[in-house]
Every structure is written in C-alpha cells, then in structure tokens.
Design a protein around this nucleic acid. Structure first.
Lengths: 213, 213
DNA sequence: TGTAGATGTGAACGTTGTACACAAATCTAT
DNA sequence: ATAGATTTGTGTACAACGTTCACATCTACA
C-alpha cells in the first residue's frame, strides 16, 4: 500500500498529480526551446509515464501547449509586476504615472530577454483576444500583462498626460511597439545585437511611445 | 529520347529544375500555413518526386525553409514598393518624405494582412542581422524591406523632419512598432479585430511613429 | 463486497525528417 | 563513339512524433 499519492509522487502506478507534473514539464520544455519544443512524448518521459497517459489530462498536444502558454503569460505578468514594484511609491503623480508605463515596457522587454523561450510561447496562442483577461494568465496581483498595461494607461489619463479621447485602443499602440522590439531582439534580425546597443534602442523606443502616444 | 529536360519538365527521371520547383512548392506551403507548414515530404510530393530527392538540392528542411523565407522577404519588399509607387512623385519634399515613410508602414501591414503565412515565414530566419541586406531578399528595386525603410528614413533626414543625430538606429524603432502591430494582428491577441477598427489602429500607430521618432 | 469510473500501460498506425545504397541520366575525355 | 566519372532521382530503412485503442489497475462509493 505504499503506492500512489505518497506526497511527492511515487514510482509505480497512480501518479497523483500527473496533470500538474506534465504542465510543469511542458513549461520547462518551452523555456528551453519555445513552443515547438513542448513535445508531448518528452513531457511524459520526464515525468516518467507512458505517452498515452497524457491524454487522460489533455485533449491533445495543443491543449497542453495552450496551458503552457497561459503559464508563460502569467510569468510575464509577474516580470512586469516585479519591475513596477521597484518604483518608489510616493512622489509627484505625473512622473509616477509615466514611470509606471515605462516599467510595464521595461519588464516586458526584460522578460523577453531573460526568458526568450517562454516569451515566444506566451504568444503562440490559438485563441484571440476574448481570453486575454482570463484567470490563468495573471500574475500575483491578479492582472494579466494586457491588463497591467491598461491600468498604466489609465494612470496616464488620470495624471493628465493622455487625453481621455485617445485612451481607447492605446494599449494596442504601446503594446505593438514594445512587442515588436521584443520579437526583433530575440527572434528577428536584431538578434545578437550587443547589450549596450540593446539598452539604447529600448530606451529610445520607450521614449517614442511616451511621446507619440 | 523524349525524356528529361523537354522544357517544362517531363514525367520520368530527370526533373530539370527540381530546386526551383521545390522552392516554389515550399513558398506555396508557407503561404497557406506559415513556416511550420513547409514540410519537406509534402513539397516533394507536390513536385512528384521522392522525398530523398530534396537532399540533392537542400542540406535539410531548414535550408529549404531558409530559402522560402528569403522569398517571403522579397515578396514583402515588393508589397512595400507597390505601396510607395502609388504616391504622387512631385510635390513638396517634406510632405513627400513623410508619405514615403508612411507607405513603408502601410505596405508592411498590408502584406501581413494579405499574406499572413508568408509574413510569418519571412521572420522565422535562423541567422541574424548580418544577412538582412542580402541578394535574394530584395524586391524589384533591389532593396530589402529593411533597406526600403532605411532609405525612407534618410529621406526624412534630408527633408529636415528627423534630426541627423537621431537617424542611427531609427529603423529599429519604426520597424518595431509596425512589426509588433502586424504580429498582434495576425498571430496575437488582436486577431479577429474587425477591419475598420484595424485601419484605425494602423493609422494611429503610424501617427505615433511619425510623431515620436 | 462489488461494481463503476478514473487513471496509467502497451502495442499499434500514420506521419515526419534523414541516411544510405543503388540506378539512371548526363558530361567529359579519349 | 565509347568508357568512365559525376550528377541527380529512387527505394528502403530508421528513429521520433502525435494519436488511438484495448486492456490493466487503482479508488470510491453502493
């Protein structure tokens, strides 16, 4: 009777927490090689289970990948939150609002740089914007990356830095700029640019958003 | 002796132009389903040849994909050129310079919308920026997308719209914004946005670049 | 206790990329 | 023209992948 859900998962039959284990393995695979690297058989192999066992918990590879992708978005949210938490709390409201938005961008880019595999995975979703504000994609504060950006933009409006009539849709503009740079840096033709130059481009891009929004 | 290189490729042994045929099949696959869809066996199947025949012309699948990707970038360059050619030639230099840059962005986004598969393929390169200005990736004018953007920015400097000291690296900023929007529109969470809203976002994004560069 | 449902196994199928020995067409040099 | 040498396509084979299905086993509840 020593089988099964002992705590950390024994060796024999019932795993006890296969779903979570497969998901974690999938995240690790995604971290190392992006969405294409989350391979069903490899995940089961790492967990020590037969390939077909995965189908008890995920409809197919895509279903597993979707959940890995949610986890990656949550990790991105955490990275953004981390960056925002480094900001001093008080101070003047307008400077603070501007700094908040910048922090969103900086966190986003830092995550893309530190975790390129997870970053690429985060945006290989199969669904559209409808689920952009869903449970599993949030950070510790309960907000998804998209929502974090939205609230930073709201702050800009309240601080009088962004005319209220230009607020709707503004997340798409800011997001596009930062996301595009991230892609070009990790996947695209800017790959291999040295770090100081990268920092420079990042700063100037955030300036552009700041100024052109 | 009716075999072989009649002109358009007969049915028996020597194909005569297998390399180009495989490349074209690969482009068609990419058009339909992006980089993942360019499958070696399917390309050989469409050309009517054994799978292993491909290895006489391409080192491996990745080599074929790389060439398909170059073709996709050339197609992107043509789309941008098309957009630029719709512009009136004369007129005031500053307005014209600004319009040129806008045309680059518009053509870029139009290509992403019209040919999402090719667009995604165009940016799945394995190399970095070193080969961004290479032969096969150019349009009819002989310039790659990157170079077209660069020359538009040069025009901006000459028209006095962009301070010369901010010219270096400016392509990365403009490119990031437009590229990011393209990605979010076709692959990302903005997929499925209705057309009028898309146009609106596109216009505002180009405004942002215009103003924030 | 015994039966129903959940969960993991093993073998199997069709698909992919790739390697290798072989065969046919063309080229080159005598 | 004829005999190699070289190119180019064929056929077979292998490992890995996603997926399915019949079966075994564990758990829970009557």
């Amino acid at each position: 009777m020593d089988t099964g859900a002992g705590r950390p998962g024994r060796a024999t039959y019932r795993h006890g927490d296969l779903r979570r284990a497969l998901l974690e393995a999938g995240v690790e695979l995604a971290r190392g090689g992006g969405p294409d690297a989350v391979v069903l058989r490899e995940a089961t192999r790492r967990v020590g289970v037969a390939p077909s066992a995965a189908y008890r918990h995920f409809a197919d590879r895509r279903a597993l990948l979707d959940e890995v992708c949610s986890a990656a978005q949550a990790a991105l949210a955490v990275a953004i939150e981390d960056e925002m938490n480094t900001l001093p709390v008080g101070g003047d409201p307008v400077g603070s609002a501007r700094a908040q938005l910048r922090a969103v961008g900086t966190g986003y880019l830092r995550f893309a740089r530190d975790e390129p595999g997870l970053f690429r995975t985060a945006f290989s979703v199969s669904e559209d914007l409808r689920n952009a504000g869903s449970p599993a994609r949030a950070g510790e504060g309960g907000l998804t990356p998209f929502q974090l950006l939205g609230s930073a933009l709201d702050g800009l409006v309240e601080a009088g830095l962004l005319p209220r009539e230009r607020r709707p849709g503004a997340e798409f503009l800011a997001w596009s700029a930062v996301h595009g740079l991230a892609m070009l840096l990790i996947d695209g033709p800017l790959r291999g640019l040295d770090n100081t130059r990268v920092r420079g481009v990042e700063r100037r891009l955030l300036d552009m958003v700041d100024q052109g929004l």
